[in-house]
Amino acid sequence: MIKEACVESFKEAKLAQERGANRIELCSDLANDGLTPSFRLMQKCCSELDIPMMVMARPRAGNFVFSDLEVVQTKIAINLAKEAGAAGVVIGLLTSDNKIDEKNTRHLAEYASPLPVTFHKAIDEMEDPVEGVRVLKTIPGITRILTSGGKPTALEGQETIRKMIAEADGRITILVAGKVLDSNIEEIQKITGTSELHGRRIVGELVEK
């Protein structure tokens, strides 16, 4: 079981590592579902911690329909992640009718190479996240999809998550999120069948006492 902790500071990342997280998703502004972190934070986490850092590349809060300028801003974030020594990047782009923005996603995944790319929970905005898997598994460089099965929690979205895993057919990893806690992670792993899970409190509250 891989536990990916979602954090927005070095202190949280360090504590997550100490508590057994296997990987970090590094963001800023988690109140808005995560934006690109500062280069300084990327550098510090990548250089001082031992577990892989997946860096969020998202230029603004709000929807996931990106303008040409925002695609360029995402590329700049990818450049910074590479320079900092990140293990991968996290992106998510949709069209105005909530389909995968295949053109720009393909372009950014190629641009990020050789870093692996996680497509984030933008997929949960789709009417049918399983269709999203069908598209994303054809795009080289996309290695994971972060999802709660289109529902607020993984437990509520478990049926769709299982369908997404079946559609992925081992070609892409379904990284399960949605109120995954240290107290329910084993239950969620068992009912979904996933091998990788993600959460803000996946190794407990990241607050030093």
Rank of each mutant, 00 (worst) to 15 (best):
75 K>C: 05
73 Q>M: 15
180 V>S: 12
185 I>P: 04
191 I>Q: 08
23 R>M: 01
108 L>N: 00
24 I>C: 00
72 V>L: 14
53 M>T: 03
97 D>E: 10
83 E>Q: 04
180 V>E: 04
125 E>S: 10
108 L>H: 00
144 R>C: 14
160 T>K: 13
69 L>M: 13
2 I>D: 09
59 P>H: 11
49 L>G: 08
161 I>C: 11
155 L>K: 12
149 G>R: 08
138 T>A: 14
11 K>Y: 04
120 H>K: 05
46 C>I: 03
133 V>Y: 13
195 S>G: 13
105 T>V: 06
9 S>R: 02
175 L>E: 14
20 G>F: 01
114 P>F: 08
150 G>W: 01
93 L>M: 03
31 A>Q: 13
158 Q>C: 13
16 A>I: 05
125 E>W: 14
45 C>V: 15
22 N>F: 04
156 E>S: 07
160 T>M: 11
196 E>K: 13
89 V>M: 12
118 T>S: 02
3 K>F: 10
32 N>Q: 09
60 R>Y: 11
85 G>I: 05
24 I>K: 01
59 P>D: 04
60 R>D: 02
44 K>E: 08
95 T>E: 02
34 G>W: 03
38 S>Q: 03
166 A>M: 09
132 G>A: 07
46 C>A: 09
169 D>I: 02
37 P>E: 13
51 I>M: 00
30 L>H: 08
28 S>I: 09
171 R>V: 06
148 S>L: 04
160 T>N: 12
183 S>W: 05
58 R>S: 02
56 M>Q: 09
46 C>V: 06
159 E>N: 14
41 L>H: 00
78 I>E: 09
22 N>L: 09
18 E>A: 13
119 F>L: 00
12 E>R: 13
115 L>H: 10
70 E>L: 07
3 K>G: 00
139 I>L: 14
120 H>P: 10
26 L>T: 03
143 T>Y: 11
